[in-house]
Amino acid sequence: MSEEKPERDPIGEDARIDALEARLKAAREREEQRNRPRNQGADANYRLGNRVLADLLGGIGGGALIGWVIDRFADTSPWGLLGMLFLGTVVAFRNIIRISNRRPD
């Protein structure tokens, strides 16, 4: 005689497993929400700072370049360079002051 083992019925879904899966899913969603980057693009202050820096460097660099060209062709070295460098710096600071006095939208 051979001993026959009674076949076991597969264990049905337990309510505790369903609840655990639901809690794990909710925890994963909360974790993804928490780890998601908050600021996707550059904010307004960052763009404004870049604009101020560009105005400052552009004014000084542009004035120096134009002054160097004037000195080169008019043979007025170093007065053209110094004059245009000063003018470029004044224009750059005027633009920065205009930007800083603008009201936020």
Rank of each mutant, 00 (worst) to 15 (best):
I17W: 14
I97Q: 03
G61S: 01
G12W: 05
R34Y: 13
I17Y: 15
R102Q: 12
G61A: 00
G83Y: 07
L56Q: 02
A42T: 10
E7Y: 13
G88S: 00
G12R: 07
Q33W: 12
G12E: 15
R8L: 09
W68P: 07
D75W: 08
E32S: 11
I11N: 09
L82P: 04
G59I: 01
G12K: 08
R72W: 10
P78L: 00
N50T: 13
L81K: 00
P37K: 00
A19N: 08
L85N: 05
R51G: 11
K25M: 03
A27M: 03
E3H: 09
L82T: 05
R36I: 08
N39S: 10
N50H: 07
V90S: 08
L57E: 06
R8T: 01
V52I: 08
N45H: 11
L81H: 07
A92S: 05
P104E: 14
F93K: 04
R34S: 13
L87F: 03
R51T: 13
A42V: 14
I99K: 04
F73M: 11
R47E: 08
G80N: 04
E4Y: 14
I60P: 05
Q40E: 06
G49W: 06
A64C: 01
F86R: 01
N35M: 10
A44L: 13
N101A: 02
L53N: 08
R94V: 01
E4C: 11
E13I: 15
M84S: 01
F73W: 11
R38A: 07
R51L: 12
G61Y: 09
A54G: 00
G58H: 02
E13Y: 10
G62T: 09
G63H: 04
A44I: 04
R23T: 13
E3V: 11
D55K: 03
G59P: 00
R51N: 14
G59W: 00
I99G: 09
Q40H: 03
A44Q: 10
R94Y: 05
L65H: 02
A54P: 04
A44V: 08
E4V: 15
L20S: 13
G83D: 00
G62M: 02
D14H: 15
P6K: 02
G80S: 04
Y46P: 04
A22Q: 03
R38E: 09
G63A: 00
R47P: 06
N101C: 03
R8F: 07
G62Y: 04
R51I: 10
D55C: 12
N39M: 07
Y46T: 05
T76D: 05
E21L: 15
L82D: 00
A27V: 01
A27F: 00
Q33T: 08
A64I: 06
D14M: 13
P78M: 06
I66F: 14
E32R: 15
E31C: 07
G41P: 07
